[in-house]
Design a protein around this nucleic acid. Structure first.
Lengths: 142, 142
DNA sequence: CTATCTGCAAAGCCTTTGCCACCGC
DNA sequence: GCGGTGGCAAAGGCTTTGCAGATAG
């Protein structure tokens, strides 16, 4: 694998970012410092870097956009139900889910993937304020 | 919600099927009995039937095709790593995963989704036979 | 030097949408 | 009869691909 300028820029950006960008999001960021980089290059390199284990490809449900994670070490993800932002989740002990499977239609099950849903801090606050506002409106109108 | 011929055919098919079809797969099946049904109708109705709770929309990772499940009761799914087929998984006790979260970047986490990966019975057998064949080749060549 | 990689544009999937005719209720 | 619905075709999003020129090692 040749370390081209573009590939290095993509890997560096992914390592720095704490978000979980799509190819297009990363492309827009990189264009500032690398105006001639192409979207196809970003797509191709995210895929290659993921295959080589430098970053992680996230196959998240609930969205039709693929995301990548610059942190390849094992952890899970939480989606904000309001804005779609992705956060990281750690669990304090290994849960042996595979041994608790009762019925699996004769599939051999090897691997489990956990996904979480919730609210990010910003949306939590936003929704809370909205609720307070509605309550005071209701007070006025009664 | 009006129960049109098409909508009824889609719901009936989903309830009978034990697979987890995509809109297009279901469309091809239905065309046999309803030659004039359109793919758009299948897409629209799968979405509506899922919103109304008659069927379940599966937002599975690892594929860019949406699938639906005629069984709306709670259970998880396993993907065959070889052929992509989806199976159902039951777990014998409720695992309280949400209470074990250690760090979640200040998200409020409400819901968890489990996904499993493995091999379906057919692919299991196929791969086993392939392996046996390779072993006997190796025996011959030594 | 040459195999790999890039940029560009086009093509490929899957899914949604606009429109008008149609048909449950 | 009327509003929801279906069929058709076109458009829309995201991702991949073919190609010719550029470049890392």
């Amino acid at each position: 694998m040749r370390m081209t300028r573009q590939r290095k820029a993509i890997l560096d950006a992914m390592r720095k970012l704490k978000t979980h960008p799509t190819a297009d999001e990363l492309y827009r960021m990189l264009k500032r410092s690398h105006p001639r980089i192409s979207l196809a290059t970003v797509y191709r390199n995210l895929e290659i870097l993921a295959q080589e284990g430098f970053i992680r490809r996230l196959d998240l449900g609930g969205s039709n956009q693929r995301r990548y994670d610059g942190n390849p070490s094992p952890h899970w993800h939480v989606h904000c139900q309001n804005c779609g932002k992705i956060g990281d989740v750690l669990i304090d002990e290994n849960i042996d889910i595979l041994s608790r499977i009762k019925s699996s239609e004769d599939f051999d099950v090897y691997k489990v993937n956990l996904e979480f849903w919730g609210l990010c801090p910003q949306c939590k606050e936003k929704l809370q304020k909205l609720q307070e506002k509605e309550e005071s409106q209701w007070q006025k109108n009664r």
